[in-house]
Structures are given as structure tokens and as C-alpha cells.
Design a protein around this nucleic acid. Sequence first.
DNA 1: TGAGGGTCATAGGAAAGGGCTATCGAGCCT
DNA 2: AGGCTCGATAGCCCTTTCCTATGACCCTCA
Lengths: 299, 299
Amino acid sequence: MTLTELRYIVAVAETRHFGHAAERCHVSQPSLSASVKNLEEELGVTLFERGKRGVFLTEAGAQIVAQARRTLEEAERVKTVARQGRDPLKGVLRLGIIHTIAPYLLPQLVAALRRDAPEMPLDVEENTTANLDRMLKAGELEAVILALPYGGPGIETVPLYEEKFRAVAPAKHALARKKSVAVEELDAGELLLLPVGHCFRDQVLDACNEFSRPPEAGRQGNSLETLRSMVASGLGISVLPATALTARHVSPLVKSIEFSAPCPVRRVALASRRGFHRPAALEKLVGAVRELDLPVTAL
Amino acid sequence: MTLTELRYIVAVAETRHFGHAAERCHVSQPSLSASVKNLEEELGVTLFERGKRGVFLTEAGAQIVAQARRTLEEAERVKTVARQGRDPLKGVLRLGIIHTIAPYLLPQLVAALRRDAPEMPLDVEENTTANLDRMLKAGELEAVILALPYGGPGIETVPLYEEKFRAVAPAKHALARKKSVAVEELDAGELLLLPVGHCFRDQVLDACNEFSRPPEAGRQGNSLETLRSMVASGLGISVLPATALTARHVSPLVKSIEFSAPCPVRRVALASRRGFHRPAALEKLVGAVRELDLPVTAL
DNA sequence: TGAGGGTCATAGGAAAGGGCTATCGAGCCT
DNA sequence: AGGCTCGATAGCCCTTTCCTATGACCCTCA
């Protein structure tokens, strides 16, 4: 049974004439006759009564033709769906973003994309690098925004921007009065960090590699905003990325102090699988990020 | 786009592996690859992302595969419908019967068929010979039970039975006391007939061809039962076929008198289009009629 | 009644589509 | 670097499908 055969029997049913049906289907009458007969034999049912008075649908034929119409309709919809899906800027883009970037990038990014690529909504997964890596490789995500270094076989990355880290301390803390601070000056005992698993935690520890041991338990917050609150409450000091310290995030209780050179930074990139089929979607995403008003250095 | 191609992409989507999908579809991997590629080109959409990490469905691919599944489902139903329609004794039989036969044949016929061919319900059209002829030739009916002579190009008839005509008169009418009557004895002025268009009217007039002119207006009834009532009311005499005069139709007010030889008769037949695709259904119908307990002579 | 026209089926050969085997090439892994 | 996995490509073959020509049948009309 083929879609062509189904088209043929629908045409015969509608024209009640093999010749006219053949014409409509742009084939010769013998071809159409043979196809119809072939289908009748495969189905084991006589679909049409061929009489000198004309062609009539049999009882079974009527039901089968009706079902054939439904089938052809669904088949047509395959093409319709394909047409709609042809535009790479159309259709959901499944994007992963790590916890320490998402809250500070997403609001502006979503707004920008809604303007530049209105038919490409984002399906955002906020998670840790390890989980996003797994999901990207498993095909559950099309792209991931995370901190470098990141890569591996089959993965392509596009650097987006580099952002500086800044120290944050309670307004009344001695540090708060300084204009800048060297990483070595930070007191490991006071430092508040994200839990294990967050790459930002490792980056901070890396930058301040003078800290021989991680801070004791109780000196952790589950998100950068939690850390900020903890600092505001005077529980200690911490380090945040610049994007978490824009005007919209300021608090009178927390002062941020820039690091003296060499200032620790992190590089943020967009990662995707090599050979991803919608490069245009990625380019749009990269372009949108680069045009955002962020306290970062473009790469 | 072919159903085979749709089957292939569904298999690839489910296995996420061209080789395994090919195995499932009982084709070689290159054949399947080529078909998938072919479909992708026809649709203008990349359905699968082929990476070394595996095969992933694209956004558009997911939608298209879902639609392909629906299409294949509908296609499967074509076969299901065909299976159900394969039995010639299954499915409605559209049967026409003339007005002067239907009321006396149908009740018993329907009962018999419900027993012998329970999956072949009758869709009965009661009408005049002229209308039934048109409907049969137009394919709106599969068979017609009517009085001979009937036929023509493309039409086949099977004689069913022959039934005698009988005169009917009010119980107090002089005729009612006779044991038999010759057609010539009937009084044309008293005779009640069906309206023009009923073949039975013509048959009665034919049999009693001594009547030079049809009876005047007002001496007509729209059905045999109306004629019987009119006779019962003493409005005149009439002629009815034997099947309208069985025990279940007797009335104390109406007497029926048989005709002396040569007794006028009508021959009832089953007509169908030559080449009708369900001869078994017709045979069943003929058999059922012949086994009925009717006051007729089988043919 | 016999010629003509209409309609679907059959026959035979050509073109194309789809299948197979063998092989390639890219990329991963050891 | 070499082996392995996996999808793509190449080249060939065969089945399927299509076309033209013709046949069979039957209705119609002179």
C-alpha cells in the first residue's frame, strides 16, 4: 500500500471514472487501473464496481476511501509541519545556563530575543555545568551558556564575554572602605562560597589559590543571591562576578570592592554540539548576548 | 514522500541509530540512510542531527516524526477497515422494493436475514419501479425487488416467485358469494386502482384489458392497504396480489375471490447491476426469499 | 443488426526508484 | 598512531511503475 495508490482510489471515488481520475493524477489510465487493482488485491477487497453504467463505490470501498482520505490528510500535514519547521529561527531552542549566570543574563537575553527572533522561544534549563554537559551530549539541550574552560569531543564553544570578579563585604566591614583589594588579602576564614558542584566555587578557589583548605561547613550559600544576603547579614565576605553586581543588584548593606591586578575573571561561552543543524539560531543567540548592556568585556 | 520513508524516520527516531533502525525495517543501513536523506531534502528540513555522540532529533524533526506516526497509524487503519469489509455478507445491503411488495415481504424477509446473515443489515428504499430503476443505475441501490418485466442494459434479474392476483369485494357484494370469477366479469366502473406510476396498477389494467378506459378519479387509493380499506367500506371492488391476502391480512368486511383460469399473475424478481461485487449477498437474499412461507409459486 | 464510440483491462517494453554490497571518511578511544 | 564505530557514498542490480498500443465488452444509434 502506497500513498500514491491511496491518491488514486480517492480520485476514482470522486470522479467515478478511471480515465478522468488518471488525468487528475497525471498518469495514464492503464497505470491507474493497474495500481487500483493492485491495491484491491493487497487489501483483499473490491473497492469499485466497474459497470457499463459507470463506476460505483462498494460498501467496503466507501469506508476504505474515507480512511484513505484521512491518511492523505495526515500525510499532507507532514509537509505543512515541515514548511513551518524550515526556518532555523523558528521553533524552541533548548538552552542550558549555569546557576551563576542565568539570573543575571536571562532577563535581558529573553527580552532581546523576543525582539530579534520572536519565533524562537527559549526553553531554559538552569543547572550545574556537569548536568548541562550531560544533557547537551544526550541531545536534551541544543546549547549551553557556561564558564570556560569547557569542551571536549564533539563540542564546539564560542566565547561570549569575560567578566571580572569582585569582592563583596558587609558595609561595616574593614574591607568595605578599601578602594581595591588583592586576592591575597581575603581572609579564608571569612569567605562564603557556593556548595561543591558549582564551577564558580572552584573558580573562586582557583583564583585565590592561597587558600590551602576550603572554608568549614556553614560558610556556604546555595546561590549567589544567598551569598549576597549572607554578606549583608554580616556573616562574612564573598566573591561575586560583575554581572551579579549591576545597579539592579545593589544593596546598602553590601559593598563591592574591585580586585587589584591581576583581577580574577571568568570567561563565559556558548557551547553546542558540533554539526548542530541550526547554526543560525546560535548566531542569533551570540549576537543577542553581545549586544546586551553588561559589565563585561566582549570576546 | 512515501509511507516507507515515514516508517524509516520513525524507526530512526526511536532507535537513535541508523544501523539499528535499518535492522528493524529489514533493510540495509545505506538504503535507510539514503531514504532518510531523500525525505529530508524533499521536506527541506534536517530531521536528525548526526553526531558522533549519537543521532538526535531536531526540533522540526520531532514534530515531523510525530506527524509521521499519525500518518502511519491512519494508513494501518486502511488495512483494518479492509479486513472488516472483506466478508461479502458483512455490511449494509441497499435494497429497493416496490410499494406493492414491501409491506408483505419485508417483515418476514428481514427476520430471515437477521438469522441467516446477521452482519448484513438491509437499508430498504420503498418506491416505485421507475425511481428504483434510476437509483439502481445510479449506484444508490445494490438490488431491487420488483415485478417483471424489468431489465435493460447492465441489469441482471433473478426471478423469485410468481403470485396470483385475486379479486376483492365487500362481504355484502354479489361477487363475494362466488367461488371464482373471470376477469371479464369485473365491473370497470366499480374497480378501485392504485394511482398512475404504480406498476401494479398497470398490471391489473393489462390483465383486465377489456377495460377500455381507466376508472374515473376518486376511485384510487395510494396503497394496497388503502384499497383494501376502501373495499371494506363498500366503495367498490379491487384486485390484490396473493401476498396481500394471507391470514394476517384478512378482514371480515372483505372477501377475496380467486380468478378462474387464466388467472392473472405477476412475476417478482431481484434485479441488480451486472458485475455487482457481492454476488454472495444477492444469493443469500434470493435464498431467504425462496424459503419464506408465502402464497406464491417459486420460480 | 452492425458500425462506432466509450470504458476499463491487458500486454510488453522502457525508465526509475529502491535495494544491496563494498568502501570511504570522520571522529572517538586506547 | 591504529583500531573501531557509524553514517555517507559509489556502483550495480532488480523490482516496481509507468507509458503506448491494443483488446474485450457493451452500449448506442442509424
